[in-house]
């Protein structure tokens, strides 16, 4: 059993951990959010305006800018939540990965502590 604990088991856990992180990154659409951070929100006012009238063009520019601002806020909000969850998940996963090889040692430590406390 211990032979497995230090070889295949640990490797399997690390693979699982990396998969979980990838799934979390996908779930929060981190790549898409970063790539399109400043894109208009749901393509609202995103179309090209064909007009020689400068006021119309300016108005369209302002509309698009507003849409971009809204889009950025929404994306940033999701990005922050996603990042926090992913970091927490990564910390927990890394902790388990570190504790994994120590698990048999922890049993020995517990037994040692019990022995010392009984003696003193």
């Amino acid at each position: 059993m211990f032979q497995w604990w230090y070889t295949r088991g640990w490797r399997l856990y690390l693979q699982h951990f990396v998969d979980q992180l990838k799934n979390a990154v996908d779930f929060f659409s981190v790549g898409l959010l970063v790539r399109h951070l400043f894109a208009p929100f749901r393509q609202i006012s995103a179309g090209q305006v064909v007009s020689s009238d400068l006021s119309v063009k300016f108005s369209a520019f302002l509309d698009r800018l507003f849409s971009r601002v809204i889009g950025t806020i929404v994306r940033l909000f999701l990005l922050v939540i996603g990042t926090v969850v992913i970091i927490l998940r990564a910390i927990f996963g890394a902790l388990v990965a570190v504790l994994w090889p120590l698990a048999p040692l922890l049993i020995v430590i517990c037994l040692f502590c019990a022995l010392i406390q009984v003696r003193f």
Partner: peptide, 12 residues
């Protein structure tokens, strides 16, 4: 993996 919760934010 199919893009996640914000996949369609970019689209109309």
């Amino acid at each position: 993996r199919t893009g996640g919760i914000a996949r369609d934010l970019n689209f109309g």
